[in-house]
């Protein structure tokens, strides 16, 4: 009994002192694929809205002993991560530190805004931060993460690195094939979370259900948008797992256009590529042909 308890405490404590801490699960999955022996933990489990998370003291402790912290960047975690790194007292992972890794640094950014103020809603002037649903951009993320690991002296297998990039290339080809029957279909999005995905595969989006990003749409705007969607013959609305269902249902009631609520990030134990394929299959299955 006591041995089991001691073992559990040991496992718990060893989890706390991971070498690599990531904000999103997909980054932890990449680290694990580059070197399965690296101790890595992700702060978020994949089902939260990463914009709106509390700076939990448990995050602070996890970050306190990390050698490397990998974040999404582009202000996605700006509401909570700065205070977590600051409270951790871990100089290495704070902004400018050797162990601070911004996974977005080589992403080909969309939606950069030169002149911005808060009347424009929940937008990110440095670009749309939802690039993790882009297989193309995630290839650049793999390269960035590998460089970050090298910088802090964490080893990874070059073979596994090449193998992983090849798996992404294969998945891109596979997704292109899966999307072929719906290529000319029109889509709408609830929030601007799918911009990179739509760009990767040349899919057509005719607008957003939100009038102002991050602000709930008014009934009048929703009705107008529903009419526009019907006129444009929109096949499907893409929404994320944290989009408000009430508004999606209201839109569906007016327009009879179906929606999918996609899980934006893989859950902790999920394989990213498998998760991605599930998302594509769900999308294809729900498009009205």
């Amino acid at each position: 009994m006591y041995t089991k308890l001691a073992l559990l405490i040991f496992i718990f404590m060893s989890k706390l002192s991971a070498s690599v801490v990531t904000t999103l699960p997909e980054f932890a999955w990449i680290v694990h694929n580059l070197n399965p022996d690296t101790k890595v933990i992700n702060l978020l489990q994949g089902n939260e809205d990463p914009h709106f998370v509390d700076a939990s003291p448990s995050f602070v402790f996890k970050v306190a002993k990390a050698k490397l912290l990998i974040k999404n960047g582009m202000q996605l975690e700006m509401g909570w991560l700065p205070v977590v790194t600051q409270q951790s007292g871990n100089e290495a992972v704070q902004l400018g530190g050797k162990g601070h890794c911004d996974a977005s640094q080589n992403v080909n950014k969309v939606g950069v805004i030169a002149n911005y103020d808060r009347s424009m809603g929940d937008v990110h002037p440095v670009g749309n931060p939802h690039y993790t649903l882009s297989l193309v951009e995630m290839k650049s993320v793999i390269k960035t993460i590998a460089k970050c690991m090298e910088r802090v002296g964490l080893e990874y297998s070059k073979d596994k690195y090449t193998e992983l990039l090849a798996k992404f290339d294969a998945q891109i080809a596979n997704v292109k094939k899966l999307l072929k029957p719906i290529k000319m279909k029109k889509f709408m999005v609830y929030h601007t979370e799918f911009n990179y995905f739509l760009r990767d595969f040349d899919l057509i989006s005719v607008g957003s259900l939100e009038e102002v990003p991050g602000v709930l749409p008014s009934a009048v705007y929703l009705a107008k948008t529903a009419k526009k969607a019907m006129d444009e013959k929109v096949s499907l609305v893409l929404a994320s797992n944290v989009s408000p269902e009430r508004y999606l249902n209201k839109f569906k009631d007016i327009s009879s256009i179906n929606y999918v609520k996609a899980q934006m990030h893989p859950l902790s134990s999920d394989d990213y590529l498998k998760h991605y394929e599930n998302f594509i299959n769900e999308l294809v299955d729900n498009v009205s042909l």
Binding site: A64, K65, T85, Q86, Q87, S88, G89, N90, E91, Q94
Partner: peptide, 9 residues
């Protein structure tokens, strides 16, 4: 300072 001493502010 969150950088002066390890695990401290």
């Amino acid at each position: 300072s969150s950088k002066l001493l390890p695990m401290a502010n």
